[in-house]
Write a protein that binds this DNA or RNA. Structure first.
Length: 247
DNA sequence: GCCGTTCTTCCCCTTACCTCA
DNA sequence: TTTGAGGTAAGGGGAAGAACG
């Protein structure tokens, strides 16, 4: 029984995108020529590898994955990338920086837009199409997620900074107002006519202001401006879009 | 059902290499 | 030509979760 998952469908869409790119492989070839290391060499045994891996029963994978510990997995990865690298070559290229071509990056980006994580099947398919090792695709997605998170943190930082500035301004304004009120020579009669002081409490989760139901409390005609933190109801209880504080 | 082990995947931090001003 | 900064592929450690005996 063949069940086509939604992710697989979207992956196939991106693979169509990939074919569009792959047809124009001049970019890839030129990079291969200009650099000593051919990251983009299509693994000659990639199909065999995939079949072999599919045969390995992995308890966690929905389909299959490169099983074993990292070192073993890397061995399989190496095998997938051609398997004809000699020990000397291997040692030579062990830590050489492998630059992905523009096409490969574009395709990876496109796939990332659709889903920022890949299941093992998608990873294998993408690696095969790009002529990369599955590990490379995995690493690329990991690094891409890290970059996204970093960017989002920077954005959040900016927002917090602006909020802080707004609150500082608001605080300054209120301090000034308090000073002005203190400066007034208020008569006891004036106090009697005033509504009782209202203590505002803010719900920490939804950031809405709760006005206590004091028997003397009168509904205010003037809206209370609370500043940037008093968000509107639809925004209240908004889950974090990024699990920055997951750990 | 509980527990320990194994395996996989993820995140995080870091390193090493590449590119460019 | 050299050099330093920034970008990024990759290594390694640790945690979480699932499967298994």
């Amino acid at each position: 029984m063949m069940l086509i998952q939604k992710e697989d469908l979207s992956l196939s869409l991106s693979l169509n995108f990939l074919h569009k790119f792959s047809s124009n492989s001049s970019d890839r070839n030129s990079e291969t020529l200009t650099r000593g290391i051919d990251v983009n060499r299509l693994p000659s045994t990639v199909i065999d590898c995939e079949e072999e891996e599919t045969g390995v029963s992995s308890p966690n994978s929905t389909v299959s994955s490169v099983s074993g510990k990292r070192s073993e997995r890397d061995d399989v990865d190496r095998a997938c990338s051609g398997g004809n690298i000699s020990d000397e070559e291997d040692a030579e290229t062990a830590r050489k920086k492998l630059r992905l071509s523009k096409n490969q990056s574009a395709i990876l980006e496109e796939t990332f837009k659709q889903h920022n994580t890949l299941n093992p099947k998608q990873k294998l398919a993408l690696a095969k199409q790009l002529g990369l090792r599955p590990r490379q695709v995995e690493v690329w997605f990991q690094n891409r997620r890290a970059r996204t998170k970093l960017k989002q943190t920077e954005v959040d930082c900016e927002v917090l900074k602006r909020c802080c500035e707004n609150l500082t301004d608001e605080n300054r304004r209120l301090q000034k107002e308090v000073q002005e009120l203190r400066a007034l020579k208020l008569s006891p009669q004036f106090y009697m006519q005033m509504a009782p002081p209202t203590t505002l409490t803010m719900c920490p989760s939804c950031e809405r202001v709760a006005v206590p139901s004091h028997p003397m409390a009168q509904p205010r005609t003037r809206p209370i401006h609370i500043g940037p933190w008093a968000s509107s109801a639809p925004l209240a209880h908004r889950p974090f879009e990024f699990d920055v504080f997951r750990r």
